[in-house]
């Protein structure tokens, strides 16, 4: 049995439990707005994180709970953020779509599709100029591959040979629409990479070790001055696009097929020690349970915070 794999399993189980808690808290009226749950995508976040240095930069999307937690945000501060608590990771000013843990180099979750790919290129440019050996990783959905910022970022990162890794979480659906019906190529990210002279691979995004190894190769290449890589990780959402989407447009057989390849099941089988995995599950459930209790007990967001942190001096003054 691999201790590392068991650890990755437990990390994924914590994310899965947090996503379920987010769903249940929403249904209980304790989370407002919307959520875009990443249950099913855990292997991408956890596998990538296992391959990265703590100071490597990560940029994620509005479906980003898994990346925040994988990089070091606690389930408690994420759930508190969703529940509009003062202890939220963004103090209640971000919400589900903007989870950020800058102290862990997780530089944000962005809710305008594709917008963060140029940012990741910029962080990679900064790392290159400062000579730090860091890489910058942008995680994005299949739908983002049809927006201009994706193409501008890949081209710039390629011509400047930046230490960037572009990881597409291809969950087969652009919101409610099958990605294949709105995209001219079968692999929406990987098939575009050659247009920018970039290497790409399509991988099983539900196998945490496969993801870890692919991201490790790409990061090594980036650190060695070899430039960016595109990774297309095929995965599947267990929930709909957002809280209001029951995802009835997905064929039953397809759902069953992907649930049978749930990244937690894949990892459980690979660990091979059922008792050890069950124990990891119990620890993860306890972690999430404590997080929910703490977030529920936390004070609500402080209205005074609404008029802070527009500017670097902490304030919001716009006039004399």
């Amino acid at each position: 049995m691999s201790a590392e794999l068991l650890d990755l399993y437990e990390r994924m189980a914590v994310i899965r439990g947090t996503e379920k808690a987010a769903h249940d808290l929403f249904m209980a009226g304790l989370v407002k707005g919307t959520t875009h749950l990443a249950a099913g995508h855990e292997a991408v976040a956890v596998g990538a994180s296992a391959a990265l240095r703590p100071d490597d930069y990560v940029f994620a999307t509005y479906r980003g709970h898994h990346h925040a937690i994988a990089r070091g945000a606690t389930p408690e501060e994420c759930l508190a953020e969703l529940m509009s608590r003062d202890t939220g990771v963004c103090r209640g000013k971000g919400g589900s779509m903007h989870l950020t843990k800058a102290s862990a180099s997780m530089l944000g979750s962005y809710a305008i599709v594709g917008a963060h790919l140029p940012m990741a290129a910029g962080a990679a440019w900064s790392a290159k100029l400062r000579g730090t050996g860091q890489v910058a990783v942008a995680f994005f959905g299949d739908g983002a591959t049809n927006i201009g910022a994706f193409h501008e970022a890949l081209n710039l990162a390629a011509v400047w040979r930046l230490p960037a890794v572009f990881v597409c979480e291809n969950n087969l659906y652009m919101e409610y629409t099958p990605i294949g019906t709105v995209t001219a190529v079968p692999n929406p990210a990987a098939d575009r990479a050659p247009a920018y002279g970039l290497p790409a691979e399509v991988i099983d995004g539900n196998d945490v070790l496969v993801v870890r190894d692919a991201v490790a190769r790409a990061a090594q290449r980036a650190r060695g001055g070899g430039g960016p890589t595109v990774i297309e990780a095929r995965t599947y959402r267990h929930y709909g696009h957002s809280r209001t989407d029951p995802a009835r447009y997905r064929p039953e057989g397809e759902v069953a097929e992907w649930l049978a390849r749930d990244p937690l099941l894949v990892a459980r089988k690979a660990v091979g020690d059922g008792a050890a995995v069950d124990a990891a599950d119990r620890r993860a459930q306890a972690t999430v349970r404590r997080a929910v209790e703490a977030a529920r007990a936390a004070p609500p967001a402080d209205p005074a915070q609404a008029l802070t942190d527009v500017w670097a001096d902490g304030g919001a003054a716009w006039r004399t």
């Binding site: 930069y57 940029f59 530089l107 917008a115 963060h116 790919l117 140029p118 940012m119 990741a120 290129a121 910029g122 962080a123 990679a124 440019w125 900064s126 790392a127 100029l129 400062r130 910058a136 201009g148 910022a149 501008e152 970022a153 081209n155 710039l156 011509v159 400047w160």
Partner: peptide, 28 residues
């Protein structure tokens, strides 16, 4: 060329990259 960078005609990449660089220690 390490301080003055010519870019493609890619306004989103220019300003988006400036943002990412500004968040990570440069003053673009």
């Amino acid at each position: 060329p390490e301080r003055v960078w010519d870019t493609p005609i890619s306004e989103q990449a220019i300003v988006g990259a400036a943002m990412g660089a500004a968040m990570t220690g440069l003053r673009p």
